[in-house]
Every structure is written in C-alpha cells, then in structure tokens.
Computed example of a mutant assay.
Amino acid sequence: MTYVVTENCIKCKFQDCVSVCPVDCFYEGENMLVIHPDECIDCGVCEPECPADAIKPDTEPGLEEWLELNAKYADQWPNITDQGEPPADAESWNGVEGKRAQLSEAPGAGA
C-alpha cells in the first residue's frame, strides 16, 4: 500500500503533509504535490494533516489514475522536504470539483 495525492490538492497545495513525512516522499509541482509510491512507507501520518482531504490510501477504489499521476510526476518534479506557503487563493479552491483540468505539469521550486 501507498498513499496517493488526489485531485483536491490541485491549486490548494497546503503542504502540511510535508512537515510530518518521515521519509520525504513528497514531490512538488507548480500547483500540486505528489507522493512517490516507491518511497512511501505507508505510515499514514500525512493523511490526517491534509486540510484539503486530498491524501488517500491506494486501497480506496477509483484511485488508479491518481496513483499513475503520482508515480509519473514524482519522477519528474523536485523533492520537497520543508513546508512552504500554500497559494494565496488556496482556500477558495478547496473542495472545487473538476480541478483535474487545472493541473500544471510544470515542476515546483522544490525545497
């Protein structure tokens, strides 16, 4: 099992999860974070820390697309090890449906 960052992280990118991850398995895109599935140790400490409820165990049904997306971008984006500031409008995007089209493939700054 691994944990997966899902659609609600797009444009929210709160990053509370990064500060509690014991293995630094988060990777940063311009407007989303992802978890490297081969680095995640399945401890689950990140899931309750996410204000956007965007982190799920891969055992939940319907997450295949998000597991693939996490694996793909974890290999392309920089690793992030310190909690940064979320976007100024993050709260206004929290819970918005259909954000997949808003996903930027550009890497973030990393930490």
Rank of each mutant, 00 (worst) to 15 (best):
V23S: 00
V34P: 11
N8K: 00
P22H: 08
I35V: 14
L33Q: 04
C12M: 14
I35Y: 00
K13W: 06
Y27K: 00
D24V: 04
F26T: 08
P22D: 12
I10A: 09
I41C: 00
I10H: 03
D16S: 13
I35H: 01
Q15K: 14
E39S: 05
I10K: 00
G29I: 13
I41A: 12
S19E: 15
C25P: 09
D24M: 04
N31F: 09
V23P: 04
C9K: 03
D24Y: 11
G29H: 02
C21E: 03
M32G: 02
C40I: 02
K13H: 13
D38E: 15
L33C: 11
F26L: 13
V20M: 04
H36G: 10
I10F: 01
E7Y: 05
D16Q: 11
D24L: 04
M32Q: 11
P37R: 05
I10M: 01
C12G: 06
D16Y: 06
D38L: 04
L33M: 12
P37L: 10
E39I: 13
F14T: 11
V23R: 05
Y27R: 03
C21V: 05
P37I: 08
Q15M: 15
E28F: 08
Y27E: 06
D38C: 02
C40G: 05
P37K: 01
K11M: 11
E28D: 15
D16K: 08
C40L: 07
Y27I: 03
N8D: 15
K13S: 08
D38Y: 02
V18Y: 00
E28W: 02
E39G: 07
C9Y: 08
I41P: 01
P37F: 07
K13D: 15
E30G: 07
D24N: 14
G29L: 05
C40M: 00
K11F: 10
D16H: 14
I10P: 00
K11A: 11
V18W: 02
C17W: 02
V20A: 09
C25F: 03
E30P: 03
F14S: 14
D24I: 00
C9N: 15
H36E: 02
C12H: 09
L33F: 09
Q15V: 00
V18N: 08
F14V: 10
N31R: 06
I41M: 09
I35Q: 07
P37S: 12
C40R: 07
I41E: 12
Q15W: 07
E30C: 02
V20I: 15
V20N: 05
V34M: 10
N8G: 07
N31H: 09
V18I: 15
E28Q: 15
K13M: 12
P22Q: 07
V20K: 04
C17M: 09
Y27C: 02
I10V: 13
I10W: 00
N31M: 05
V23G: 05
S19Q: 10
C25N: 10
H36V: 01
C12I: 10
K11Y: 08
V18D: 06
E30S: 03
N31T: 03
N31G: 10
C21K: 01
C25L: 08
